[in-house]
Simulated scan of single mutants.
Amino acid sequence: MIDAIDKEILRTLQADGRKSATALAAEVGLTVAPCHRRLKDLEASGVISGYRAIIDPAAVGLGFEALVFVTLARVDRPTIEDFEAMVVANLHITSAQRLFGDPDYILKVMAKDLSDYQQCFDNELTMLPGVQRVSSTLVMKNLKPGAGLPL
């Protein structure tokens, strides 16, 4: 069971996943040993599923972002499994959600520039298994990238 202290640990780590156990303990009002034990329990139970670096896309040459809406021709199990496997394997697609209603999926696609995105759209996205329709909109400004959960 996650209590108020665990939630405070999670809120703190969402803001700074590199915070030391000593600093984390001080911030949440614990000594190091119980804080470390709680942290290990949260990791072991899968509440904390991993840690990662947050990279500025423009700093690595990926300043072009599009939201892509995909409608499948069929929504049978083999089509969905094939489509989802190809989406997971595609490096341009950095986020994907299956939706209720139309469209069936929304994908976040990162590219170098418009030309790179056009190549991805024509040669990768429209070629995904079972695709009936693909449309996209370009992201003008990302106001809240990687926001944490509301704990």
Rank of each mutant, 00 (worst) to 15 (best):
P103K: 02
L30D: 06
L107M: 09
E8I: 01
D113Q: 07
R133T: 14
N123L: 08
A44K: 15
L143I: 13
I48N: 03
R38K: 15
C120S: 08
L138H: 09
I106F: 01
I55Q: 02
V131W: 14
L62S: 04
T12R: 07
I2D: 02
L149E: 13
G130P: 12
S115R: 11
L128D: 03
S115Y: 06
L107A: 07
L67T: 01
P145K: 08
I106E: 13
P103C: 06
G61S: 07
M140P: 00
K7S: 04
P150Y: 04
A73D: 10
Q118D: 11
R18S: 13
T126K: 15
A26Q: 13
A111I: 03
G29A: 04
A4P: 00
T126F: 04
V75K: 13
G146P: 00
T79P: 06
A53Q: 12
A15G: 13
G130N: 07
L99N: 10
R98H: 04
E124R: 05
A4I: 02
A4F: 03
E8N: 09
T22P: 01
E124H: 09
V28M: 10
A4D: 14
R74M: 13
V109S: 06
I93H: 11
V28F: 03
A147W: 04
A66I: 00
A58N: 05
I80A: 12
T71E: 13
T79V: 15
V109F: 11
D82E: 15
L107Q: 06
A111Q: 05
M127I: 01
E124W: 00
H36K: 11
R38C: 06
L30Q: 09
L39Y: 05
I80R: 12
N123S: 09
T71Q: 10
V68L: 08
P129D: 09
V28L: 03
D104A: 06
S95Y: 14
S115K: 11
P34S: 01
G101V: 11
I54M: 07
N90C: 15
R37T: 08
Q14D: 12
A53E: 15
I5D: 04
Q119T: 14
L149R: 12
K144R: 12
D122Y: 04
T94F: 01
A33N: 10
P150H: 05
L149T: 08
K40R: 14
A59N: 06
T126C: 12
P57Q: 07
N142S: 12
K141D: 10
Q14N: 11
H92I: 00
P145L: 07
G46A: 06
L42D: 05
A44T: 05
P78Q: 07
A85V: 01
E43A: 06
S115N: 10
K19P: 00
Q14G: 03
D102G: 00
S20Y: 05
D41P: 00
K141M: 09
L39T: 04
T126H: 13
L114V: 05
V28K: 12
L114Q: 08
S95R: 14
V134M: 09
